[in-house]
Computed example of a mutant assay.
Amino acid sequence: MTTTNSGEATTAGWSWRVDPPAGWLVVPSTLTEDHADIAVWERGAAGAVRVSLEQQPDADGEPVAVHDAMDDAVGAALDRMAEESVVNLRAFADGMAPEGHRVVARLGVLGRGPVPVLVAVRVSDPAEPDDGLMAALGATGGYPAAPPTVEYPELPDGDGVRVVRLDVGEETGGAWLSVGLGRRTDHSDAVVDTVLVWRTQDVLLGAAMVDLLDELLPAVRVTRGAA
C-alpha cells in the first residue's frame, strides 16, 4: 500500500480514501504525509477535540455544551487533554501505517475523548479470494471470553459482516471489547474487502460504536486505479 499527501491510498491497483462524516477525523501519519500538512492538521484537530470535550451527553445521549460553567483551571485541563489526545492519535497512526492501515477517530462519543478506528482495504484474486476477512474482523483466533457474535448486515455495495467479541487480557485480566465491520465487493477481476476495527476496555461504548461503524463504512471510497 502507498498513500499520497491527499490521504488517498493505493492497494494492488485500487485507490481508496476516507471522506469523513461530521464528527470524524482522518489522522495523518508521518510516513505518508508532509510534516507541514501534519502541523496544520494538528492545530485544527486540537481545536475540534477541545470543543468535543466541552460537551457532555444529556439524558437522551445528545451532546450539551457545559463550557459556561467552567473556570480557568478546568479550561486549561481540557486544553491539555485535547493536545495529549492529538499526540496519541498521531502516534497510533504512525504505528499502523506500515501495515497499510489508516486511523480515523470519532469525537464526542458519550463524553469521551477521541475514539480511534482502524481502516484497511485488501484486494485479492477472485480465483483465490483472500480468506483473512473473518480473522481481520475478529471472528476467529485468539481466546474470546465467549464465541464472537457474527452478523451479516445488508449493504448496498457489497456483502457485510459485523463481528462483536469480548476478550480477557492475558496480562491485566481486564475485559477487551472489539467491534469489526467489513464489506466484501466482488468484481470480475478482483475481490475488494474493506475492514473497520475498533477495540477498547471501555465496554460501555460498545452499542454506540456499532452504530458509528455503520456510519463510517460508506465513507470509505474504493475506486479502480489511481486518481
Rank of each mutant, 00 (worst) to 15 (best):
V18T: 13
W24G: 10
L25T: 01
V27S: 09
S29A: 12
T30D: 08
L31S: 12
T32R: 13
E33H: 15
D34N: 12
A36C: 07
A36R: 13
I38D: 07
A39V: 12
A39P: 02
V40K: 07
W41V: 15
A46N: 06
G47A: 11
R50F: 15
E54H: 07
E54V: 00
E54D: 07
Q55S: 03
Q55K: 11
Q55A: 15
Q56C: 04
D58Y: 05
D60P: 02
P63K: 14
H67F: 05
D68H: 14
D68V: 06
D68P: 01
A69Y: 03
A69Q: 13
M70S: 01
V74R: 06
A76L: 09
L78E: 01
R80S: 11
E84H: 05
S85L: 03
V86R: 14
V86S: 12
L89H: 12
R90Y: 02
F92K: 05
D94P: 01
M96N: 05
A97W: 13
A97N: 02
A97G: 02
P98Q: 09
E99P: 00
E99Y: 15
V103L: 10
V104P: 13
G108C: 02
V109E: 04
G111K: 06
G113E: 01
P114F: 06
P114Q: 04
V115N: 03
L118A: 15
L118T: 11
V119P: 00
V119D: 00
R122K: 07
V123R: 13
